[in-house]
Design a protein around this nucleic acid. Sequence first.
DNA 1: TAATATCGTACTGACGCAGTGCTGTATCGC
DNA 2: GCGATACAGCACTGCGTCAGTACGATATTA
Lengths: 193, 193
Amino acid sequence: MFRMTKQTDYGIVLLTRFASAPMGQVHTARDLSEETLLPLPMVSKILKVLGRYGLLVSHRGVKGGYSLARRPEQITMIDIVGALEGPVAITECSLERPGACTQEPLCPVRTHWQRINQVVRDALAGLTLAEMTQPLPASHGTRVMLETVELSSAAARGNGHGHTPAPSSELAPAALATLPASPSPVALLNGGC
Amino acid sequence: MFRMTKQTDYGIVLLTRFASAPMGQVHTARDLSEETLLPLPMVSKILKVLGRYGLLVSHRGVKGGYSLARRPEQITMIDIVGALEGPVAITECSLERPGACTQEPLCPVRTHWQRINQVVRDALAGLTLAEMTQPLPASHGTRVMLETVELSSAAARGNGHGHTPAPSSELAPAALATLPASPSPVALLNGGC
DNA sequence: TAATATCGTACTGACGCAGTGCTGTATCGC
DNA sequence: GCGATACAGCACTGCGTCAGTACGATATTA
Ligand code: FES
Ligand code: FES
């Protein structure tokens, strides 16, 4: 559950490249593809979407490319995820489009889901692209703190969770910035954090 | 993003039926199917999984069925979601199976994802099945509070978000407990909260 | 023994995602 | 102006996962 798509994964990798470079620098899809070892069509496709949503600005023609529309400190994860995967919502009629569901006044669990949704959204909104480029955040700047209050069930849980042992294929992607010429075909974080 | 599967949705609906009934009551898959208007094979399948993961206990043979293994206050959303969808993790190598990814010491963004993951997990762990059955939680018992601290980006966001307008099909499911004989084929919360 | 109801697994169709390809258009350098 | 570059937009194709179905086996009760 809650697994993000590869597009989003790739998008974050690409945006971290932008954030690491000087502000305003123009990157072409081809260059980014070579740096990240991601297939060029996918890079182009993702940059297109990010441009459409205002996270990147496109420069057409020769010497064109993409550059960050805002400073990395002003781009949050919810912007990126929202652009590449649509509005962040666990269920259909939780936030967004209020009134789309006719059961809103009656529905007994809607408020609970909204709360969960809000927690997720706040967590994503509290993490900026600038922070993603720094390996160790420690605890400066944004802090996402969750207060889980006293609850008996929190301790009384011991199920084995012996789930499917995971295919273990496509593990070990190349490092992001340390091995630009790695033999591994892709350098990303999914199947990989 | 973050949309849960229908199995989980159905599972929550079914479990709320258990939670609403007296503790220890035995429900058959057939009865639950008729009450919730969900297809019997799916109900059977889901109950089976929930039984395997220790949330329900099964009673075989004539007069058999399923009953809650623990009190509703001791079953959290993360138990349900974890049983029906596997471990809650946004990405592959975030939590669970440490060491599976060889890039852990180098990966610059792993800690951030772990933080997001933890927020989601805590949010789900802080919501019990007993609370899901009560329409208005107000703020007693568990409280999931998120501190989003000062952050410039939180305000500087105004992209249109004019996403795909949603197919708007399969809206408006029947109410959960109020209309047991609704003409609508299913009574659930997905496509619905 | 017969009836009931779960258990386990395997199968099939549908949908969304990952990835590819092509045509069009705007900009720069000559 | 002309060609090269690089983005814009759309349409298409595999493939994996999910939703739903089916069937035989097993355990319990009457
Ligand atoms: S921990 Fe696996 S790639 Fe970051
Ligand atoms: S608000 Fe849509 S079913 Fe609950």
